[in-house]
Design a protein around this nucleic acid. Structure first.
Length: 354
DNA sequence: CGACGTGTAAC
DNA sequence: CCTTTTACACGTCG
């Protein structure tokens, strides 16, 4: 089973700003560069009617938006609280849960449903009702014989949908899908597939594996063909973070190390908070840079295990100095810090601890 | 084989 | 005009 909260951030804002209900709602991530600069995190269905989409620059959304549109600044802390409660609720209704993002989860209900589609449907309806009762939110749920089909099924009817694709129906369902609707196929892969005249999942399922491997690499090619046949054996399993990062935008593009470090220092407390909450040690420190051409670059260094965030900062400075001496003609637009190679010390008991 | 950097993808 | 966070594959280097 796959559950997706409908336009989650927008719905969450409508909960605490009832006057926004019935109006287009847009959730913005302001970068702080200028008054209005930034991107759209999400929008409600009314705003989507005007062509406003996630990822779009705020300026563009403002041009598209009708007069009565309400713009909110994204508030992760608030959304996380709600998300945690929803996930806890789901946790009680399934055998295993895999939280895929703040607003999405896969649930294995094989045992809870006794392997019966009818019972799985009953569980889904119960979940939808509970989420609505407790949180005032609607969601869309897909049920299928595996994660891939469940995920694709959850997209069939939204918002507030419930779609069941049984094992018997799965073949038909996937055959009638387009390649681009298969989870994991993004713009780059799609254009490669299109250049090979592959548009439907059916085309992909019948594609020449060797030719596909040449163009996509062995791993991707095999995975895509499996998916195009509706096959997905990946288990529903709890996700454990392998990396924690935080990134921010500089006031203006710069090469000045002190102003870049200053921005890193702003980001540090939040990262530290998450580190402490999870009680993890890290071994690898990376800086993430987005240059003025919007290209992402990373530099990393491994050290001996530590939980000391200030150690991370001094490694970051070192990496940054090296980066600036290597990359003589780039300006830095955005800077971030990531820690990986994590070891968990504390026993994690509930989902809420993650 | 581990470390490192990039590309792709999803949210 | 251009956000944030995470995962994984792959190539390269030593």
């Amino acid at each position: 089973m796959h559950m997706d909260l409908d336009s989650f951030y927008a719905s969450a804002e409508e909960l605490r700003h009832p006057e926004a209900k019935g109006k287009p709602v847009v959730i913005c991530v302001f970068s702080g560069r200028t008054e209005e600069s930034g991107a759209i995190a999400t929008s409600n269905y009314l705003a989507r009617k005007s062509g406003i989409r996630a990822g779009m620059p705020i300026s563009q959304a403002k041009r598209l938006a009708p007069e009565n549109t309400i713009f909110f600044s994204r508030d992760m802390e608030y959304y996380r609280e709600i998300s945690e409660r929803v996930m806890d609720l789901l946790d009680d209704e399934c055998d295993v849960i895999e939280q895929a993002s703040i607003d999405e989860a896969y649930m294995d209900v094989t045992i809870k449903s006794n392997g019966l589609w009818e019972s799985a449907e009953t569980i889904a309806i119960w979940i939808k009702n509970k989420i609505l009762e407790r949180e005032g939110l609607t969601c869309s749920i897909g049920i299928g014989p595996n994660k891939l089909i469940a995920k694709m099924a959850s997209r069939v009817k939204k918002p507030d949908g419930l779609t069941i694709i049984t094992e018997t129906q799965a073949g038909q369902f996937i055959e009638n899908s387009k390649a681009k609707d298969i989870h994991g196929i993004g713009t780059k892969s799609l254009s490669i597939l299109e250049s090979m005249k592959i548009q439907s999942a059916k085309d992909l399922a019948q594609a020449n594996p060797l030719e596909l491997e040449e163009r996509l690499g062995k791993n991707k090619a095999r995975l895509f063909i499996e998916k195009a046949k509706g096959i997905d054996e990946s288990p529903v399993e709890p996700r454990v973070a392998k990396q924690l990062s935080r990134i921010g935008t500089l006031k203006e593009d710069t090469r000045d190390i002190e102003s870049i470090i200053a921005k890193l220092q702003d980001l540090l407390p939040e990262l530290e908070g998450r580190l402490v909450k999870k009680d993890v040690k890290f071994k690898t420190v990376s800086i993430i840079l987005i240059n003025s051409k919007h290209e992402m670059q990373t530099r990393s260094k491994s050290i001996s295990d530590t939980s000391d965030i200030s150690a991370a900062l001094s490694i970051a400075r070192e990496l940054l100095e090296k980066y600036l001496s290597e990359e003589r003609d780039v300006m830095v637009r955005r800077i971030g810090l990531s820690v990986s190679n994590l070891t968990y010390s504390k026993e994690q008991k509930s989902l809420g601890d993650f």
